[in-house]
Amino acid sequence: MSTQDATAIEKVVIDTLVEIAPDIDPAELEPGVDLRQDLDIDSMDFLNFIIRLHERFAIEIPEEDYPRLSTVDGCVDYIRAKQPA
């Protein structure tokens, strides 16, 4: 997974999000939209989302980093930064 580019990461992030909240339409998903506030992702959904990202990208995501994962763009940046070059 180390060489994944932003687009590939974004796709996995969005797919994961849609698993958690199947009513979200990726086509209408603004990259900067706040997942919790704007998409009504509650804390339980968000934890399930984080767990799946952790599994899929094999990265550790400490709790204090959660705010950095509040948007799709934020997730992509975070995952890229966390992955070995």
């Binding site: 996995v12 849609v18 698993e19 958690i20 199947p22 799946r52 599994e55 899929r56």
Partner: peptide, 22 residues
């Protein structure tokens, strides 16, 4: 498959991208 992931929890193999809910 989703439940499988949840139930096996920590030891869960990463779900494939195409797997459960999508």
């Amino acid at each position: 498959p989703k439940e499988q992931v949840m139930a096996s929890d920590a030891s869960a193999a990463p779900t494939e991208q195409g797997a459960p809910g999508d």
